[in-house]
Amino acid sequence: MKLQKKLGIALIAYALSANFASAASETEGNNDFASRNIFAPGTFVVDGELTPLYDLSSLTPDFTYQDTLSANQVLSFSESGLSSGTPFFAAIDNTASGVDTRLGVFDETNFQLDDNDDGSPLGNGLGSLIGNQVNNDQSINLKVTGYNDYNFDGSHTLAGDFTLNIYLGFDAIGEVDYLSFTGLTPGAQMKAEITSADFDTTLGLFDDTGNLIDWDDDGGQDALSLLIATVSSNGELNFAISGYPDFNFASGSNNQFGQYQLTLTAVPVPAAVWLFGSGLLGLIGLGNRNRRNA
Score class of each variant (00 low, 15 high):
residue 142 L to I: 09
residue 153 D to T: 05
residue 169 G to Y: 06
residue 270 P to V: 03
residue 285 G to W: 14
residue 18 A to V: 04
residue 192 A to F: 01
residue 239 F to N: 01
residue 252 G to E: 05
residue 66 Q to D: 14
residue 260 Y to M: 10
residue 294 A to P: 08
residue 127 G to D: 03
residue 140 I to P: 12
residue 199 F to C: 04
residue 249 F to L: 02
residue 72 N to K: 15
residue 179 L to E: 10
residue 238 N to Q: 00
residue 38 I to R: 15
residue 258 G to L: 05
residue 20 F to C: 09
residue 67 D to V: 04
residue 238 N to P: 00
residue 259 Q to D: 06
residue 282 G to A: 11
residue 13 A to E: 14
residue 144 V to S: 08
residue 200 D to N: 06
residue 9 I to A: 15
residue 116 N to I: 01
residue 207 D to Y: 06
residue 3 L to F: 00
residue 54 Y to P: 00
residue 162 F to H: 02
residue 34 A to V: 12
residue 10 A to S: 11
residue 161 D to Y: 10
residue 272 A to G: 04
residue 201 T to A: 00
residue 26 E to K: 00
residue 240 A to K: 08
residue 26 E to G: 04
residue 134 V to P: 09
residue 69 L to D: 00
residue 99 V to H: 04
residue 187 G to C: 10
residue 83 S to T: 15
residue 37 N to S: 09
residue 131 G to Q: 05
residue 268 P to C: 06
residue 196 S to H: 07
residue 130 I to R: 06
residue 219 G to P: 02
residue 275 L to Y: 13
residue 38 I to E: 10
residue 248 N to K: 04
residue 168 L to E: 03
residue 136 N to I: 12
residue 291 R to T: 00
residue 143 K to C: 10
residue 51 T to P: 10
residue 97 S to L: 01
residue 111 F to E: 15
residue 191 K to G: 00
residue 210 G to M: 02
residue 126 L to D: 14
residue 170 F to C: 12
residue 263 T to N: 14
residue 111 F to V: 13
residue 78 S to Y: 03
residue 115 D to R: 08
residue 239 F to Y: 02
residue 22 S to Y: 09
residue 276 F to W: 13
residue 175 E to N: 13
residue 42 G to P: 07
residue 32 D to M: 08
residue 129 L to R: 01
residue 212 L to K: 02
residue 97 S to M: 11
residue 150 Y to H: 13
residue 160 G to V: 08
residue 134 V to L: 13
residue 28 E to R: 11
residue 4 Q to T: 15
residue 135 N to V: 03
residue 220 G to I: 08
residue 165 N to M: 11
residue 144 V to Q: 00
residue 260 Y to G: 10
residue 284 I to H: 09
residue 149 D to M: 08
residue 224 L to G: 05
residue 11 L to N: 03
residue 181 F to S: 07
residue 100 D to K: 15
residue 251 S to M: 00
residue 110 N to M: 01
residue 266 A to D: 03
residue 108 E to V: 09
residue 135 N to A: 09
residue 270 P to I: 06
residue 137 D to N: 07
residue 68 T to F: 15
residue 160 G to D: 01
residue 235 G to W: 11
residue 64 T to S: 15
residue 165 N to Y: 11
residue 172 A to Q: 02
residue 135 N to D: 05
residue 61 P to F: 10
residue 195 T to F: 04
residue 156 H to I: 08
residue 184 L to Q: 01
residue 24 A to Y: 01
residue 39 F to E: 05
residue 219 G to S: 13
residue 137 D to T: 12
residue 166 I to F: 04
residue 53 L to F: 03
residue 8 G to T: 09
residue 285 G to H: 14
residue 186 P to N: 08
residue 161 D to F: 04
residue 214 D to T: 10
residue 49 E to G: 06
